[in-house]
Design a protein around this nucleic acid. Structure first.
Lengths: 155, 155
DNA sequence: GCAATCCGGACCAAATCAGTACCCTTTAAG
DNA sequence: CTTAAAGGGTACTGATTTGGTCCGGATTGC
């Protein structure tokens, strides 16, 4: 199973919790209370998100975090990249010459990259606002199954 | 980084090696020699692929493995599912009620499922034949789409 | 100045994964 | 019929990664 880090799941939970505020900054501890997650973990997530520009942080007393952009301008791919690092399904693309034999002869590299691009495109198509939306039958996506037909063509 | 099991990468290498044969069955050790991978590992991969019906195995003396279908009828999603199990990015969808609080109130479940479907669809669009094809400039992707230049490298 | 808050590390325990080895069953060749 | 070759399955171990915690600083508002 392709696993997504649990931290990334938490990040979505935290970010959706921030959407519900009154617009003011949220402290790490208040978000931890609201989400039920351990405070240090929430702090770690917020730091990672801020480092990638998804959060605007304000230090000092009465400081806190704020979403850097509107929820529909933040997509899942960006969140994953902030928490888990670059989205790449395999590391055959770099280093480890012993595994593939001669790297220059390994024809899989470019093709894995194609797969990576397809997955990345799929993840970029889902915004934070989509994730926060309750999972009722979604009017925005009339056909749910072929969620992103554009990426299917792009492969 | 979303990581794909190294075994899955090896599986693609082994399967592409099988495509190059004369159509006869391949033994695990001969494939291990051709690919440079450890023999027990190759055997493990072949067993997993055979269990999911991607391989046809023939036991006994002069036995071996054979691709169950044509290379363009096998896609990457099937290989991943055979090696790594079902394709799901998060396990928030099941169990672990402590993490999400009350599961029935967690609105993320349905949305992660949507993401999972998108990724699965992307992976189903790449066949084994595509992976074996040398990585010539791809006419299907006209522009590299540096829509987000800052994050293009990071994602 | 003091307190609250973020920042950036290092650090440890737990889970997961890759790889290996062992033994059994099946099958074809001689 | 015997024998050996090959797959089938399971269990084990070492290494890597991950989740989570903690601490000392830096920064800002009161």
């Amino acid at each position: 199973m392709i696993r997504l880090s649990k931290l990334t799941d938490y990040a979505v939970v935290v970010m959706t919790a921030m959407m519900q505020g009154d617009g003011g900054p949220h402290t790490a501890v208040s978000l931890a209370e609201r989400t039920g997650l351990p405070a240090p973990t929430v702090s770690k997530i917020l730091k990672l998100l801020a480092r990638d520009g998804l959060m605007a942080s304000h230090r000092g007393a009465a400081g806190g975090y704020r979403l850097a952009r509107a929820p529909d301008a933040i997509n899942v791919a960006q969140i994953i990249a902030a928490i888990d690092g670059p989205i790449a399904l395999t590391d055959c693309v770099e280093g480890a010459p012993g595994a593939c034999g001669v790297e220059s002869l390994c024809p899989r590299r470019g093709n894995w990259d194609r797969v990576n691009r397809a997955v990345r495109g799929a993840l970029e198509g889902v915004s934070l606002a989509d994730m926060a939306r309750p999972m009722f039958p979604d009017p925005v996506l009339p056909k749910a199954a072929p969620a992103l037909p554009a990426t299917a063509d792009a492969i």
